[in-house]
Nucleic acid binder design. Structure first.
Lengths: 110, 110
DNA sequence: TATTTATATAAGCAAATAGTTATATAGTAA
DNA sequence: TTACTATATAACTATTTGCTTATATAAATA
């Protein structure tokens, strides 16, 4: 692993929003509207964070109808590093419950 | 570990200079003038990076005469996280050889 | 078709960041 | 004391960052 690449990964995860996103994605895929349930910020802001993670190859996206689901990219060269980092981050059960309670995508039937 | 604290640590290591510093400090303590041998930047810039790492409790400093030596703080709550991260970063043998060749602190007799 | 919903992109802005040069401080040594 | 060396701090600047609002795109639906 190149130093530049490791540093990029750490910089991206060195933001509370993105670190939380990744911690959640470790357990379940999420679409943008689900993230909107747990982050107190605008939808474009959430999309922009996800874009950065996608550009770095840390997450992948897949469209299901009008929803776009984001997942941790297990094929990424950064996956193991991320996995090791997440061992030290607090779990996000609270936020995941919040997502599920919200039924943000119950509408989509997924 | 708080999310804020983990994010702070990742942000600090998400800089190539600081990540390299930490990778070196894993193997040997260094003073500022030794870091000057391997980073192509001004002395104040190096001091400022070390200050940020010190403020976060990631490194500690100890003065020996006119030299100030920096070490990884093994007592830090971030130490294990950092240790796990460094497993994924390239080793800095090259730079450490460069430091030793330079004899930056041979003068101090340490 | 037109409307609604989900998401992305563009443009702008304030705050943070990483570097610089100049200067201050601390220790050593003449 | 004075001069020198190592390091820290201050002040400044250009760039990057993370947000905002406004708008565009894409899919579903009436």
């Amino acid at each position: 692993m190149e130093l530049d690449r490791a540093a990029l990964c750490l910089k991206l995860l060195g933001d509370k929003t993105r670190l939380t996103m990744i911690s959640i994605l470790k357990h379940r895929d999420c679409c943008v509207c689900e993230f909107q349930e747990v982050f107190d910020m605008s939808q474009p802001s959430i999309s922009q964070h996800l874009r950065k993670l996608k550009d770095a190859g840390i997450v992948t996206e897949s469209r299901k109808g009008q929803w776009v689901y984001y997942s941790l990219n297990q094929q990424s060269d950064l996956f193991e590093l991320i996995h090791d980092i997440l061992k030290h981050a607090p779990d996000q059960t609270e936020r995941m419950i919040q997502i599920e309670k919200s039924n943000a995508t119950l509408r989509c039937g997924c």
